[in-house]
Design a protein around this nucleic acid. Structure first.
Lengths: 232, 232
DNA sequence: CTATAAAATTAGGCAGACCTAAAATAAGCC
DNA sequence: GGCTTATTTTAGGTCTGCCTAATTTTATAG
């Protein structure tokens, strides 16, 4: 319904209104580092859509609808920023910049999960387990991470991951099968060129637990069947 | 240098190339749910800029430069997706959609931090501490979170946070002072309407540790000075 | 090998988000 | 109050990213 840019305008108007008596178009322009005419035309659109009140040469204010939206975006910004900064330990400036972009894509579900993660961490801390602190310490001590292998094509011993035995390291050659399954696999990082290894499996042989890029995933039989691999 | 959309095209071309012999413009269109002419013009631009190889009625392939960028975006996508899905426990479809938007804003620093967080969690798990599992359990047991108070203006007993005593709950009324300081405070969620409480402080009185929206932050003296509050 | 169907491309249009240059309005000063 | 200066707005332009409709090219069937 609203573009990212429009959301940004609302958010900024809100933030400016917290520290300025009257928010003028030029304030917004300064804030974004763009020219006033650009702001004016953006404001016209926002006014047409009922998100702001604005008269020629007057101050900009958010309508009820605009305020609601601004608070919503701002909440996601804040949550994302805090998460990056205090959970992941990303430096201030970078966290801020990343949050500016990410806020528009963060769903309420994700934002809630982040908030809950704070509470969780806090609870643990009160119980004497400092997850944040331990993570930061961990990062300091283990600064390097391996790089991903590149795709390479040979066809000796190709088979489906569903028939590979546990503990055998394989290179993923190709994905196959249902579109939706492929999307999931690709999302999880099950992609050609990566190395996988079956780590464990359910009592009936499936689901299998695979180790990929240092991370453990669980695959159902149909998913494992659409992964074509070769022994590494 | 490249727009988000252009990055999306490169990423999609890469993903399609993993499962399709020849990637045609119509495949891309189908993937994005847009019309072929739109794809054609996007491809022309990408070709001009040297990111793809493409001839009329032919297949699309990524150039070296294009492949590099595609892998880069894809890596951020994957990392973000995994993080949302497996650390925060966001449902599959939502995690996927969020990651699609967030990938363009995630800096290398943030991506690295997320990757390290995986390793960290895995290390802890091997040591018998299942952070993920505990977090999910925590979420199930504690489903509700309080809402944020709205801004309200009265001027009885307003003062700066820097002079407030420990353990007194205050409502933030306004921010004041240096632009950069304000930005940081706003980013952290120190905004009008929120309730704060000083929890602890350094040996010299500063920095102070405040509790805000269930989260603990540390503020330096200058930061505390630009926060104007009223006792709640 | 031609007729027809399907797919890809060109042409042209529209909205968003920015710009510069020029005109209109508001503010400050004697 | 009138004049200069600063600010704001209008006018008009560009580029991206999508669209539809028309055209061209390729594929398919008889």
């Amino acid at each position: 319904m609203l573009t990212h840019t429009a959301e940004d305008y609302l958010e900024r108007i809100y933030m400016l209104s917290l520290r300025l008596e009257r928010v003028k178009s030029s304030d917004i322009a300064k804030e974004f580092g763009i020219r006033t005419p650009s702001v004016i035309s953006a404001l016209k659109l926002l006014k047409e859509k009922g998100f702001v009140h604005y008269r020629k040469h007057g101050a900009v204010t958010l309508s009820e609808k605009g305020m609601e939206r601004a608070l919503d975006v701002y909440d996601r910004h804040k949550t994302t920023y805090r998460f990056l900064r205090f959970v992941l330990g990303v430096p201030d400036g970078i966290a801020s910049a990343d949050a500016c972009g990410m806020e528009h894509s963060v769903s309420p579900e994700t934002a809630d999960a982040m908030k809950d993660f704070f509470s969780f961490i806090r609870l643990k801390k009160d119980a004497g387990v400092d997850i944040q602190g331990e993570f930061q310490k961990f990062r300091k001590e283990k600064p390097t991470v391996g790089k991903r292998a590149r795709y390479s094509d040979t066809d000796s011993g190709t088979r489906r991951l569903s028939v590979v035995k546990d503990g055998i390291r394989c290179v993923i050659l190709k994905l196959d099968g249902d579109r939706e399954v492929k999307r999931r696999l690709l999302d999880m990082g099950v992609i050609p060129g990566e190395t996988v290894e079956i780590r464990n499996r359910g009592p009936l042989g499936f689901p299998i637990e695979i180790l990929i890029q240092g991370y453990v995933l669980t695959l159902r039989r149909d998913e494992a069947e659409s992964v074509i691999v070769r022994e590494a």
